[in-house]
Design a binder for these strands. Structure first.
Lengths: 236, 236
DNA sequence: CGCCTCTTTGAGCTCAATCAAGGTGTGTGG
DNA sequence: CCACACACCTTGATTGAGCTCAAAGAGGCG
């Protein structure tokens, strides 16, 4: 699950290519990433669980992770889909003796750069620009949550359309061109993210499939008629 | 609406009493608050509207503000109830040419300390501890949003119980003792916060009134049987 | 006094949940 | 290699929580 340092070199190079770290020098990077570990996870493997001591944070390198929370009565809710470049759990590093509030589970084989909590407090904290970049990311995620809350009363089809479009926007340019959603998603996962039941999601999506709005091959969703979806979003 | 500097002295003293600023010296405080204005708002008056240029941020001094977002179809959703000590809009200061994503409206006469955006970028940013305190506040608010999302499938009565209890926890000790919720809330506002309809909220609350769980006098809600509500929360 | 905001109650309807049942593909242990 | 479990997908029938609509009373205010 955790690989030796030789692969770390490559991982750091990957980090360098992220906008978050673009402005940093090699030396600064090394400092920030002291004690880092590249972490390889299989499908459905977790990197941490809700309630565990938050001893580290990190960055998604490849693949994807779902961040989930389970309600007292066993319902699982997906709070966020983390894609490459996303910083995870950095927000709770400043909180005293914090626990992870969520569980992070790999969706397909994925890689994660794991950084010790001390790094954040000792090396990341004194970099105002870095911290504010992270804060910006947090602010965006928060705005997304707020937007979702705003859509609370919208019909399920609309919520689903919004979700798909916003996921599509995370694709790289060429995939986006082809309407490919950059995530392997099960209907259950979509349902868990929208707070809906699997059946309802299936009904809406198979309806769209029949109408040629989208198609699914092995959990890979391709949107064929983006305009139809956008239209769906503005209905009522 | 905006008062001269003489009242500023008093406002700064109020700030000093907040945990966020407890560790700062007098001089630091003055620096951070250069150009600040104490801002007095009437009931239903806004301090800023969604879409306006985010030229300032600030701290709630007294009263309360509701932070709202309106969906394309005219639905208003209350994203957060801001109470004294809450920092507003600091999160979006680092974002380049940002607009306010929400509207802040006074609930009853309230006061707000308005700080120019430049202060954040010039004076607040270089203070790691201060920035991280703000980030912690942001993280908590985010966790609250996540918790709400988790409760998406819960029955409305449960969501309402959770809201009331969490608001009650914001009271000062003596008010909490008496079950007083530190906010003047209309049923509509509760509905807008939970994404429900006014009628549904009324039905649940008048039911609870009849059972003696709570009572309302002129928008002031008093919880009589906290245990009943907590019980309500755990009902599937 | 008319206007506005807020509250209340009742009736009917609808969207999406639940329940039930069956189908497919994949991994796994006997 | 088979069977069995498990995760996922699908469809239909039924149900109910909460929405909408409608109508009306109760302050507060210019």
């Amino acid at each position: 699950m955790e690989r030796p340092l030789d692969s770390l070199e490559a991982s750091l190079a990957e980090l360098k290519s992220l906008p978050l770290f673009a402005d940093l020098t090699r030396g600064e990077m090394n400092q920030l990433c002291v004690g880092a570990r590249a972490c390889y996870t299989q499908h459905r493997e977790t990197i941490f669980r809700a309630g565990e001591d938050a001893a580290f944070f990190g960055v998604v390198l490849s693949g994807a992770y779902k961040l989930t929370k389970s309600s007292p009565n066993g319902e699982d809710v997906i709070v966020h889909f983390a894609v490459p470049g996303d910083v995870i759990a950095a927000f709770i590093m400043p909180l005293p003796n914090s626990k992870f509030p969520i569980t992070a589970t790999a969706m397909g084989p994925s890689r994660f750069l794991k950084l010790p909590r001390e790094n954040f407090l000792n090396y990341w904290k004194p970099c105002p620009d870095l911290i504010l970049s992270i804060q910006s990311a947090l602010a965006l995620r928060m705005q997304q949550l707020q937007d979702e809350k705003m859509m609370l009363k919208a019909p399920l089809a609309k919520k689903l359309a919004i979700l798909l479009i916003s996921l599509l926007e995370k694709s790289n340019a060429s995939d986006q061109e082809q309407g490919l959603i950059p995530l392997q998603l099960t209907r259950k996962e979509i349902a868990d993210n929208l707070g809906a039941s699997v059946e309802s999601i299936i009904r809406i999506m198979s309806d769209w499939s029949k109408k040629g709005v989208l198609e699914t091959t092995d959990r890979q969703i391709r949107i064929l008629k983006t305009d139809k979806l956008i239209q769906e979003m503005s209905v009522e």
